[in-house]
Amino acid sequence: MSGALTAVPPGRRPLRDSTAPAASLYHARQPALHVRWRGRIGERLNQTNHNAIGNATGKDRALGEPVSLSALRVKLLRFATLQLGDPHLAEDAVQEALLGALNNLRSFRGEAALHTWVFSILKNKIADQLRQRARRPEIGETVIGDDLDETISIFDDRGRWHEPNRPVRWAEPESAVIDHQFWRVFEACLENLPRQQARLFMMREFVQLDTEEICQALAIKPGNLNVALHRARLKLRACLEHHWFVAGEAAC
């Protein structure tokens, strides 16, 4: 196990150059979940790496270039579709957010500022949409009533942490959010949650609807929402720890 830890290249980017070290690290620490997750997280990270390389080597990524905006658009659309549960509404919301940005292109210094701006506009549009929906709620209990508890392997049968899953102190959590690579890991971890869990988690934490608003918009019971959020938090926490925070600590 210590071999796997030291094999992670320095510079806090265990998932960047190859998914192999990260996968084996994960395997070493969390055998039970690994079986279920490895395939998907590996695939997902490979995809993002390919995209990143494709974009990084092109010369055509100056602010406002079509390539840049279309890649952003895909990302936004995916997020909006997950949150709204309706591709057409998502399309409209993304279109409006992007149009707003296009009209103000000159006022952005660099892509990061543009992305942040567009995404926050989109976030507000999603929040409005969902709040309006309270009168004609959408999914109902069945979607969440998923009786398979995927978090079961995190604890032993007496409800204590399985040793490899016991949370450890995170190294420099503040600096993670300004690291582009961290967001890759975050997205990959999010993608590994069951879809509705990821949706509810981001609805709560990113779009920042409160639990009552979510329950109304989606016609679910607070108890079920709490279960879904608990599972999402458990798994997201574990994934970030295994793929970022602990790996980073080993490199320092």
């Binding site: 993002t48 995209n51 990143a52 974009n55 990084a56 990524r61 390539v67 840049s68 890649a71 952003l72 895909v74 990302k75 936004l76 997020f79 660099g110 892509e111 990061a112 992305h115 942040t116 995404f119 582009h180 967001w183 890759r184 975050f186 997205e187 981001m202 990113f206």
Partner: peptide, 10 residues
């Protein structure tokens, strides 16, 4: 959170 599509400067 900000989506990671194209932040190639970093």
């Amino acid at each position: 959170y900000v989506p990671t599509a194209n932040s190639p400067s970093e």
